[in-house]
Amino acid sequence: MHKRLMKGNDAAVYGALMGGCTHFFGYPITPASEIAQTASYYFRKTGRTYLQGESEVSVINMLYGASSGGARVMTASSGPGIALMAEGLSYLAGARLPAVVIDMQRAGPGLGNIWPEQGDYAMVVKGGGQGNYKNIVLAPASAQEMFDFTKQAFTLAERYRMTVFILGDAYLGQVMESVEISGELEQSERKDWALYGDKESRRNLITSIYMSPSDMEAHNELLQRQYAKVEREIVDYSETDTDDASLIFITYGIVSRICHGAVKRLRELGLKVGMLRLKTLFPFPKERLKELARKKITFVAVELSNGQMAEDVRLSVDGLTKVLSFNRMGGEVMKSQDLVAFATEYLKG
């Protein structure tokens, strides 16, 4: 076990290496560039592959190609780049190819700016490209989790033959924290569906085209069954002080750190406030939210977007309780004292 002070962006590279990733395809974009930079050094140095594509469009298709060959593959980008990858992500889903993609979100729309936002939630969590597909979406909240979640992402991607997103943000990439490089170096096993340029795999076909509507529907149904399995098996979240809470912050990523500070302060003030932090955005912890909603606890969806996650919270609770939104956008980040004031006013007012 090795412990190091490192940036969230660098931690992702260590996580990838320890997760058995052998092929990184990159294209620079602030605030994710350090991931490509660090990967270009360590992937090549350890005999793995780093290659810089000519565009994000090219990069996502490189993931498609390398994943077809059974390799553990990844890239990292930010909103504008992820948007360009939409078609390729859909192809990956259609062809059921595992891949890991990191989105260090910046503010949008358009060129926006390079400050943190969570405005890519809908694009990433709902799929992003054409067709009925989903990505597994993990939401780290610390440099350690940038390592842990990225490492774990490769196992999940292969288990479910899906793209796993790490949805971070500009701050999470820039912050340095101590990170434990732990666990075993993972390795990819030979897959019965992949191509290896040999006799045994020769008749394998990587495709997402099914000309007959009945075949295409069957394929879609297969994908939906897989997504349902993912929902049953890997939903993950953590709770703080929810047992007796009358108000709960629902949050993810860097914002959950801010909420954590707010909950601490609110408890000191004697207010029954808790928080639920999503670690997986798809699957979404619908059942748990519904359970809490039945207790008539007020939810406040706290996020750096126009309420994209809040919509999923509302869908989950299906009208059972009130869901408020606390949003900042454009690179502005709420302060924990703002949340303290909001909750205090709500609970006392």
Binding site: L51, A66, S68, Y91, G197, I209
Partner: peptide
């Protein structure tokens, strides 16, 4: 072996496949 690719992107797909095998 066969890989069906998206419109225009076969050289990127092939680049990566070749780097694996």
């Amino acid at each position: 072996g066969n890989i069906q690719c998206s419109h225009g992107r076969a050289p990127a797909v092939g680049t990566a496949f070749k780097r694996v095998h």
